[in-house]
């Protein structure tokens, strides 16, 4: 059930729409620079076929008394596989493979599977999520105003435009790239409520062979 809620929220957050609509008030030079940077990043990241990266996610949420730190590994295999393994503070695995999403967690030791074709909205969201990790940000321009914080390595700040749902919830999303701009170094999300989430990528390895086991959730489940 939570997947559906998750769907809605992902949908809201990644409500990228068609079109390349830049901020018309931005000076022409800045627009050109931004275009160049986005193109450059997309070009660099388009060479990635597989990816394995450790991550640390720090959540400072009003809902929690203390900061929550999650540690784990993300695996991506283009075009259609993504795995999210959390090792701390509890074990949790989510695997997106083509049409199917499988989730498992240590507490329940149960696998939940969802067909994307039967959940078109969810499918759209997952597609956007993969786009986010892929670095192809051009489609996000319609819903977000993108500011180039730093050109080399690139640092981009996404501010939701007014009258979008994301604009009600998200204050800004900052994406920093690593030195060689081959992949993202950090994603920082600041909500209007004051909550923040920082997702840092560590030990990122590109285009390495990935074992089949990373795409499997716990086999000994109920």
């Amino acid at each position: 059930m939570i997947i559906r809620i998750l769907t809605i929220f992902l949908l809201l957050f990644f409500n990228a729409a068609y079109g390349y609509s830049q901020n018309s008030q931005a000076p022409e030079k800045i627009r050109t620079e931004l275009t160049d940077v986005l193109s450059r990043l997309e070009k660099k990241m388009s060479g990635i076929k597989t990816l394995k990266t450790g991550f640390v996610q720090e959540k400072e949420l009003a809902v929690f008394k203390q900061k929550v730190v999650l540690k784990g590994t993300i695996y991506i295999e283009k075009p259609a596989r993504l795995a999210w393994h959390v090792n701390e503070p509890m074990k949790y695995i989510m695997v997106i493979s083509h049409d199917m999403i499988s989730q498992w967690d240590e507490d329940t030791n149960k696998v939940q599977k969802i067909s994307l074709s039967k959940n078109p909205a969810f499918e759209a969201v997952i597609g956007q999520m993969q786009k986010w990790f892929s670095g192809a940000y051009t489609p996000l321009l319609k819903e977000y105003e993108i500011t180039l914080l730093k050109e080399n390595p690139a640092s981009l700040k996404f501010t939701p435009r007014a009258a979008t749902f994301a604009g009600n919830v998200i204050k800004s999303v900052t994406v920093d790239f690593r030195k060689d701009e081959q992949y993202i170094n950090r994603i920082f999300i600041e909500e209007k409520s004051g909550d923040t989430t920082k997702l840092s990528f560590v030990d990122t390895q590109l285009n390495i062979p990935l074992e089949d086991s990373v795409w499997k959730v716990n086999p000994g489940v109920k």
Partner: peptide, 15 residues
């Protein structure tokens, strides 16, 4: 548990 999923950053308000 739901707050540990990759999309947890988006489900907090509804939870």
């Amino acid at each position: 548990r739901q707050l540990l999923s990759p999309s947890s950053m988006f489900i907090t308000p509804i939870l």
